[in-house]
Simulated scan of single mutants.
Amino acid sequence: MSDSDPQAYVDEMVRKRGYVLDYHKLMAKQDFEVLQAANGLVSAAYLRERSLDRRTKELIFIVSLTVMRAGKGHIQSHIRVALELGVDPREILEAIEIALPEAGVVAFQHGFEAWCEVVGAEGIEPTVTVS
């Protein structure tokens, strides 16, 4: 990554991560040094393959973001990367469901809604009405 050119740095972030968040774009222009420091931590813990592969890390990220009720767009960016890495949509849903016992229905619904939008999930409408 370019240590002196914010534009090249952000472009390289997209290539390595598969996405870039709005705060990355803003920090690149407003405080490039702090963006680089924060990205260094993310690279060490998340992007570099060590014991866990990238697919597993994406699933963990999706669950942790769901439990924290992160912005839907943030969760969706990791869902998209997971799908690009070959993770099955059902595997992602199963990971999100882990939020149910630990974080509750509200947190689960937040992650589930993000998942539904990315994968185009459809539901079943009732065929009966109650008067």
Rank of each mutant, 00 (worst) to 15 (best):
V10F: 10
V10L: 13
V10T: 06
D11V: 00
D11R: 10
D11I: 07
E12C: 09
E12W: 13
E12H: 07
M13V: 02
M13R: 10
M13Q: 11
V14F: 15
V14P: 00
V14Y: 15
R15H: 11
R15E: 15
R15K: 13
K16W: 01
K16Y: 09
K16V: 15
R17T: 04
G18Y: 03
G18T: 01
G18M: 01
G18K: 01
Y19Q: 03
Y19D: 03
Y19I: 00
Y19L: 07
Y19R: 04
V20C: 10
V20R: 14
V20I: 09
L21Q: 06
L21R: 11
L21M: 14
D22W: 06
Y23A: 03
Y23Q: 01
Y23G: 01
Y23K: 04
H24D: 07
H24K: 05
H24A: 07
H24N: 12
K25I: 12
K25A: 03
K25L: 15
K25T: 05
K25M: 03
L26W: 03
L26P: 00
L26V: 12
M27K: 13
M27N: 06
M27H: 02
A28M: 06
A28I: 00
A28R: 04
K29F: 01
K29T: 10
F32W: 06
F32T: 04
E33H: 09
E33W: 04
E33P: 06
E33Q: 15
V34F: 15
V34E: 14
V34G: 01
V34H: 14
V34I: 09
L35Q: 08
L35D: 03
L35W: 08
L35S: 03
Q36Y: 02
A37L: 14
A37V: 10
A38C: 11
A38I: 02
A38F: 14
G40K: 04
G40N: 13
G40M: 06
G40S: 07
G40F: 11
L41F: 13
L41D: 06
L41V: 15
V42W: 12
V42H: 05
V42N: 05
V42G: 02
V42P: 00
S43P: 01
S43Y: 07
S43V: 09
A44Q: 08
A44Y: 08
A44R: 13
A45W: 06
A45S: 10
A45C: 12
A45Q: 09
A45K: 09
Y46I: 15
L47M: 11
L47C: 02
R48S: 13
R48K: 14
R48T: 10
R48N: 14
R48Y: 05
E49Y: 00
E49W: 00
E49Q: 14
R50Q: 13
R50K: 12
S51T: 12
S51Q: 10
S51D: 12
S51P: 05
S51V: 11
S51I: 11
